[in-house]
Design a protein around this nucleic acid. Structure first.
Lengths: 238, 238
DNA sequence: AAGTGGTCTAGACCACGTG
DNA sequence: ACGTGGTCTAGACCACTTT
């Protein structure tokens, strides 16, 4: 076999994954220290870190600050075209969701959002910034921009749960048209910091514009996910 | 300022991006060699490569085999819920698409696809494997699994253009229901090789199940994209 | 205080792509 | 043949987390 022709870090990657599988390490279990792995595989830390980086890119393991490497849990199945919300989606799949509201304020619509929403720049708009976790692991930060015309006093409500549930049940608002954009994007700056990941970590960016039945602006949403935490699943009928 | 507190590779990343912007390097223009950059920034290749890796993760630059680093062109806007096809999408946005059919064959439906399609295992199915490029840059490999009941003789047609155009115009087939899954996934093994990228490179995986108006299996599609080449854009009305 | 990951150095050899 | 990126070594110091 030509197995020994493969680069060392590929061999380490595969053996490490084999080891993880054999020991049935599950969601969020910790791996041995890098120096430990380096001596175990008879190589240097640099090479071990290259192998770990591969498994990280494949979404099989993740790191937490300076605390170590952990096995990635299953991806969450998430349908952004429905308004079930994060909280319910996570619960239904047997995980424990949690949300921290990092900030909420009434502000004026910036020009980029004015262009998207079709409303004039400077129009009042609610801005909510939240960080959400699955089983204690931070998986996304989310900006919500909400049209206050339809839901006065929203900010005095509890925003640690589903905003859509609030809009639907308290304000009787119902989404009609949605325009969704999704693409891979590295997590940098404040998003990386808020999620406690290295700057440059792989992420998934998702934005969503929601209009009501009269095509009025209801809400705009920017989500920054860690790359390995979700699987987007969309139904599209024609 | 506390600029010097930042890690060297972050400073190099930012200065390099500044340099690229100032020199207005556009789509697919080549960067100086790594050793050149290392001496220019007065550091080592390892650190320069860390900086390059950051810009790569952000989708700002990409590498091609052992040929060097290049500036990433704009993302393609792509709507998987419509059947415009790759060819038309790329053309409409002012780029030059190209497709190579790597293999096409009539085969038997494997069990995983049987489960998805609802047809019995072993049912005949067309399998087409294609590699597609934008302006000469390979951006995706795609597996198409097509129900031959609806389009006998498909494989003798030219599959270097839009398969959906073929299905629509030659076979009068029209998609009705679609189920789409999207998630970030590293490119490894044959996909990485076919695209000429490093194993472990960031990618976007997209699969699509298409049924006709009678809910019969029409087509199943697995696409492996390089992470920085597209922006998925979906309309969802309720 | 000890251990961890994060960063960094100054080299080296190899495989591959391009001229 | 040469230059390129890809891989790898054997150390080092720092910042942070955990004990």
């Amino acid at each position: 076999m030509q197995r020994s022709d493969l680069p060392v870090y590929i061999q380490v990657r595969d053996q490490l994954w084999l080891w993880i599988s054999e020991h049935r390490l599950g969601g969020q279990e910790r791996l041995p220290a890098e120096r430990e792995l380096a001596s175990r595989f008879n190589t240097t830390r640099v090479t071990v870190r290259q192998a770990l980086g591969q498994l990280e890119a494949e979404g099989k393991i993740f790191r937490s600050n300076r605390r170590g490497w952990y096995v990635t849990p299953e991806r969450l199945e998430y349908d952004p075209s429905r308004d079930i919300g994060f909280y319910n989606t996570v619960s239904e799949q047997g995980y424990t969701p949690s949300t921290e509201t990092l900030s909420k304020e009434l502000t004026e619509m910036p020009s980029w959002l004015a262009e998207i929403s079709g409303l004039p720049e400077g129009t009042p708009v609610y801005h909510v910034l939240r960080r959400r976790s699955i089983d204690s692991r931070c998986v996304l930060v989310e900006h919500n921009y909400i049209n206050p015309v339809n839901c006065p006093g929203l900010l005095s409500q509890d925003t640690d749960h589903s905003i859509w549930e609030l809009l639907r049940e308290t304000y009787n608002l119902h989404p009609s048209k949605r325009q969704i954009e999704i693409y891979p994007q590295a997590l940098t700056g404040i998003e990386a910091e808020a999620l406690g990941v290295n700057p440059g970590s792989a992420g998934l960016y998702m934005q969503r514009l929601t209009l009501d039945t009269d095509a009025n602006f209801l809400e705009f949403d920017r989500e920054y996910w860690v790359h390995d935490a979700l699987k987007v699943s969309v139904q599209a009928d024609q």
